[in-house]
Design a protein around this nucleic acid. Structure first.
Lengths: 300, 300
DNA sequence: CAAACCGGTGCAGAAAACGCACCGCTATGT
DNA sequence: ACATAGCGGTGCGTTTTCTGCACCGGTTTG
């Protein structure tokens, strides 16, 4: 699209950090690119780049413009897919930033079911922590985020929230396997593994330990991979902690999950959300609606 | 702005109804304009105009594009005023579509107070009925709407709602002037004036009459101007009906207002809203926040 | 059935964008 | 201390794009 060329150049310069570097990437002369940038700034009425000795950098006005550019590009993509819909073709793309816990079972099942009805729709799914997911939303790099509390950004619009009590995952022959609800003190009295502090599970556990005993928890194994922890718990007979939505017990014959007593540890909130005020592409909006339905039935 | 030229031409053609007429309006040759339109359609991938014997008309894809164009233009304006803010200048423009009732006292007071703090901000204020106001929002012709229930459009995002019991307005020496709350049957037993059916006041009165007595109300004078009705009530000693937010009794020595008993007539809801999902220009967002504060204190 | 409009096209000239060569400046590395 | 490499910016001739003019074929209108 001709009229978005300037925007592409601006983003190119931003990426490359200098006009000259960008000019190579974009197959154009540095002088021509320079003139386009200057001309744009002139028409726009404000400079958008700071000129530094070794290149350029966006100034605050440029940052605002950048957000507009991304919003504009995203809305244009939405428009095109909407128009494509008119011609009877059901296409589209959905990009999701989600917590690791959703990757093994929940999302694959959801997406494959959705694609059964809409085979033309493609997906991008990436594991992101809360902060990253929020940033991706605001940069229009992801349409939908599915992460755990707490959030830091005001632009994250929560569309659906769902409480998730932390579960202990352990072998069937573990001493605690008989309980229906596990007290935190019991769980911690056994060797256990726990995620690092950037994960909501760990934060909730630490909160509880601090509230109950003013202490910190001391996992024998710490990891950023829930997959690893779950498997490790199986090998060395440890207690692992996880949100139930990340579990699919039918497929784990030797492992079972039991909820921690909510008197000890408050449940985490799984949040489905998008960038505040954004009109999602049709496919993403549809898929989000499906997600809400699935999550709602998950409540039981 | 160079890159919005195509959009301006498209809107020009839409307005004029034909390429030739639009070409005159926009000081360009018909052939050149025709080629721009064709080229845009080619790049866009879809035709956006239906070619008719006497001109052109938007097709469904064009309608979608039109909405994108308007959203895009509005967001660009927001961006520019936001950038202007960076330079220390507090400028901006606020456009409001509101019910007639807000025009005499409420909005002038609000706006003048706001302009006291921000003299650079300009305003457009228009009286619109609900349907028109909703349409203006969706066409980005107005930023803010302040109207009474009920709404018909899903894209109207209610930001603040406030119950307004209908008041009877009459002369101080009217027989009902002594009451603190007026029963509907009493009010209707006197000569009265009422707005036409497109106004919420009338709808609520009719609903009440239908519910209570399965009848319709029979005003002696019917008008679309609340100003006229209020003044007429003064001249011929009649009962007039109005929402209290449209009244400023200190300035009407000879008139008083008394609420209708809420057992008879349900209150109307005054709704402050904007187009769903839209990011308002800074000035409009600010003014809306002020409006909310004022309305909230009005509750007492 | 002619006149009035309509969208579309061929062609030549105007305007905009571009590539090349080069300038002045500054951080960097020897 | 000084050459160098990398940066943004500029003058100029060339290429690409856009525009205006004249004109075509088709349809409605009076």
């Amino acid at each position: 699209m001709r009229h978005l060329k300037d925007y592409e150049f601006i983003e190119g310069v931003l990426r490359a950090g200098s006009i000259r570097k960008a000019s190579e990437d974009m197959h154009i002369t540095a002088s021509a690119l320079n003139r386009r940038i200057n001309k744009f700034e002139e028409e726009f009425g404000y400079e958008i780049f700071e000129r530094l000795p070794r290149g350029v950098r966006l100034n605050p006005a440029g940052e605002l413009l950048l957000h507009h550019i991304r919003a504009q590009r995203s809305d244009f993509a939405r428009l095109k897919s909407q128009v494509a819909d008119l011609s009877g073709v059901r296409r589209g793309h959905v990009s999701i930033a989600c917590s690791q816990a959703l990757l093994p079972f929940f999302l694959p099942r959801q997406i494959s079911r959705y694609r059964g009805d809409h085979p033309g729709v493609t997906f991008t799914v990436n594991a992101r922590d809360r902060v990253e997911a929020e940033r991706e939303l605001s940069e229009f790099a992801s349409d939908i985020a599915l992460v755990f509390e707490p959030l830091t950004m005001v632009d994250f619009e929560v569309v659906f929230a769902m409480a998730q009590p932390i579960h202990c995952v352990m072998r069937r022959d573990h001493p605690l396997a008989g309980e229906q609800q596990i007290r935190l003190r019991d769980a911690l009295s056994f060797p256990h593994v726990a995620p690092s502090e950037k994960f909501a599970v760990r934060v909730l556990l630490e909160n509880a330990a601090h509230r109950l005993w003013s202490s910190k928890i001391t996992p024998l194994i710490e990891s950023e991979s829930f997959d690893f922890m779950r498997h490790y718990a199986e090998w060395e007979d440890m207690v692992s902690f996880q949100f139930p939505i990340g579990l699919d017990m039918e497929r784990h014959g030797d492992l079972i999950a039991r909820p921690l007593d909510v008197r000890d540890v408050e449940p985490g909130n799984l949040l489905l959300g998008q960038l505040r005020g954004r009109t999602l592409p049709v496919a993403s909006a549809r898929f989000m609606r499906e997600l809400m339905r699935s999550l709602r039935t998950h409540l039981n």
